[in-house]
Amino acid sequence: MPELPEVETVRRTLQQLVVGKTVERVTVRLPRIVQHPDDIEIFAALLVGETIRSVERRGKFLRFIFDHYTLVSHLRMEGRYGVYRSDEPLEPHTHVVFHFTDGSELRYKDVRQFGTMHIFAKDQDLQEAPLRKLGLEPLDEAFTLKAMTDRLAKRTTKIKPLLLNQEYIVGIGNIYVDESLFRAGIHPEREANSLSASEWAKLHEAIVSTLRDAVAAGGSSIKSFVNGQGEIGMFQHQFNMYGRQGEPCPTCGQHIEKKVVAGRGTHYCPKCQPLKRKRSSGGKT
């Protein structure tokens, strides 16, 4: 599933490719992609004559900002966008096509068919599902160490599933949680309230630096991710942990281990990320 760096990469690409284009008509070939409104004819009609003013992101969601509406798009597992000439043949699994007045088209393809689209009145989308309950944006200025610890530090949940919970921090999926925890030297099964102040500071820095590095590299292409121009990401070549079980840790040389934590395959170094338990007396870890 595309995580924050991949969605941000797509956003930046589409910002260059489609902003300023006006919709002439919309073709929906797979109705279940459209979640709101539940009538695909209304969905298509709302955007006719609308011009894309910007492409934004909230967590793992894309937000296409039109004159009067916002289209919220979730790529899910394998959704992808591409810009084509209208005379180019449709590729398999093309489910939604936005036909522009200049003869170009924005096409949404999704082999797994898990992606979703919602249209709301402009800015109303932030007050409605699926965006309403999303947490802190880790690349925003508002994502301070205090903001993070205020939300997470007293939780008794293991740190990995807590970081995966989009109601606390958005956009960090399995890959970037593993990489961030390694950079911070924190075991994925540590309880959040067992982390010391210095560990929270290291984790905050690790999350921000990992995501920024991944965005700079165009995201990670593990299976099929490409941006709006068909280009793959390169951050997978910088992985320290993810997908490297059995290989030597780049820091200490010990073999990287993999286990299931909260239902997710999790990669970590047992030496660099020791599992410390919180003392019952409330002492330091």
Rank of each mutant, 00 (worst) to 15 (best):
S196Y: 00
Q238Y: 15
D150G: 12
H204W: 15
G230T: 08
T251K: 15
S180E: 05
G243V: 13
I222H: 06
L152I: 08
N174V: 00
Q238W: 13
K158W: 11
M234Y: 15
D140M: 00
D140V: 00
S209K: 14
C249E: 12
T156Q: 14
N240C: 13
L136P: 03
E199R: 03
T157H: 07
E205Q: 15
V226G: 00
R151G: 12
H187F: 05
Q245S: 15
L162V: 11
P248H: 11
E191I: 02
D213H: 09
S221H: 01
Q238H: 14
L181P: 02
K223M: 05
F143C: 08
G135Q: 13
R183L: 12
G246N: 14
K154I: 01
L163D: 02
V215A: 05
E199G: 10
V177T: 12
P138L: 07
E199A: 09
G219K: 06
Q245A: 15
E179G: 02
L139M: 11
L145E: 14
L164I: 09
L139T: 12
E199F: 09
S221E: 08
A217Y: 10
L162I: 02
T157A: 14
N174Q: 01
S194Y: 02
D150H: 07
L164D: 05
L211G: 10
K158S: 05
G218P: 04
L136V: 10
I207T: 03
Y168D: 02
N193W: 05
P161E: 06
L139W: 10
Q238A: 14
P188I: 08
A142P: 02
K158P: 00
F182W: 15
A192Q: 10
D140P: 01
R151Q: 13
G185C: 10
M241L: 15
I172H: 05
I175C: 04
L145S: 03
R151D: 02
E141G: 04
I159N: 00
H237D: 14
A197W: 05
A217I: 00
G233F: 12
G218R: 01
R155A: 12
K154L: 05
G171H: 09
D213S: 14
I186N: 06
N165E: 13
N165A: 04
G243E: 11
K223I: 15
L152A: 11
L145M: 04
G246Y: 08
L145P: 08
L164A: 07
T149H: 02
F239A: 13
K154C: 01
Y242S: 08
S209P: 00
V170R: 06
P161L: 12
P188N: 07
I169S: 10
E231S: 06
E179L: 07
F225T: 05
